[in-house]
Design a protein around this nucleic acid. Sequence first.
RNA 1: GGGCCUCUAGCUCAGUUGGUUAGAGCAACGGACUUUUAAUCCGUGGGUCGUCGGUUCGAUCCCGACGGGGCCUACCA
Length: 506
Amino acid sequence: MSQESTGSGNVNPDIEQDLEQDLPEQIAVRLAKRERLNELGDAYPVTLPITHTIDQVRASYPDLEIDVATGDKVALAGRIVFQRNTGKLCFATLQAGSGQRIQAMLSLDKVGQERLDEWKELVDLGDHVFISGEVITSKRGELSILADEWLMAAKTIRPLPNLHNELGEEYRVRHRYVDLIVRDRAREVVQIRSKVMQSLRRTFEQEAFLEVETPMLQTIHGGASARPFKTHSNAFDTELFLRIAPELFLKRAVVGGIDRVFEINRNFRNEGADRTHSPEFAMLEAYQAYGDYNTIADLTQKLIQNAAMDVFGTHQVVLEDGEINDLGGNWPRISMYESLSEACGQTITPQTSIEDLKKLASSVEIEIEHPLAGKYVEELWEHFVKGDLVKPTFVIDFPVDTSPLTRDHRSKSGVVEKWDLYIRGYEQATGYSELVDPVIQRQRFVEQVTLAAAGDPEAMKLDEDFLKALEFGMPPSGGMGMGIDRLLMSLTGLGIRETIMFPLVK
RNA sequence: GGGCCUCUAGCUCAGUUGGUUAGAGCAACGGACUUUUAAUCCGUGGGUCGUCGGUUCGAUCCCGACGGGGCCUACCA
């Protein structure tokens, strides 16, 4: 066996015995240590007599003097993230899941020669270890546990990456569990996301909304225009779609009398992925009976401002690059047509002909071919206005022909009561005064289906059951949808793949 | 979908204008060390240079295909 072990000349023979030649050296060495630990005891004990968490000990001794022995005994566990072994005194830094750290000290006179030697031989960076002993401070003032006893809590087989260089982007995404161990910011983002979710739910609770869950597997995909993921049900022998939006089911709930309803759950869209798009993403949708697009805009502003305040204690959020994202105050509402007219220097109204819109579009090199005038208006608006919207802004009153689920404006012709919320130039949320007239809704769907027949793969299918629900009477309502991942991006300045703990990778 | 770039040790990266034995720091292994904290000191090992094919006396390096990743672009209510 030793002649096959690829030149590991000075390795301890006990360990070398267990080397397998096709494994990386460090893994083989650690597997041998695992065997040895199992001979001595248990490399993965089911339970340990823990009395304190690292956080508790840290909190209990906020400012001890240098070189103090408290006489207090604790027993705790953590993952080793730094190790410094000397001849008769060993140091290790233990890290809790919270990221809190504490130093463990193992001295010859406390644990004895045998256990000290076993510590030096068998304990590696990354291992979970159990330490019981006295709370002290070292001669350098570091809060420490001076061990009477140590036990392996869980042996690590793979070496932890170098803590002193940044991990590569790809490694971080593919090995998020490692990223979470070694990078404080990764852990922090998970904590922020959880707190944001709690805050959103708290605000909804204050406003008397009920949280529901609606189907993700759907026989007809609707509520948005995007290409769906397809799958197949064996039991029903039928094609199913992963939902692209929960909208049509939440509206059924409102028809049923769930007057204030929201859902936070995953949507799936079979489109390109980039810094702001993920094939699966968390979506918040909310509907409020007897509200309209103004009340739902107020609610949206409140949700985001409360989240910033609850999580960061301020509306002036500091982003990854140091920039301040100012979410405070009352967010302005600007008209899409008016802001476009102002920015492009000619008056654009819902009555502007598609020929004129095409002319303007090609003059600024927007090359699209689309049958709907509204599409051109939106493209032109994005070209002329979107980039300048840094502060949170509601863009209101969209073209009717691209918004099939939205009711016509109460006084302006050719537009619908719809807004998009832009924050730092990204579309953050969208809200409507919902279309509740079943006859008009049917007409809109028929137009969409006609488009689909003309080859638009994103046009909605006719959902007869949804129309039937509307025929039972949906109260006038405001509704909104907001990307949760994008909200996290707005609050942190990170890319979407950093706000999602485990983004899809090939 | 189109264009450009990239893949070297467990991790982060050098490097080879095509040439015998591909380097560094951390990590690992052997040794010394009872106050370290990116510990230090002495010594050692670790690589199919993404994969397959081509050119060549010789390829990690040049060329091609494929795979992974990134950026730009297109698409994305």
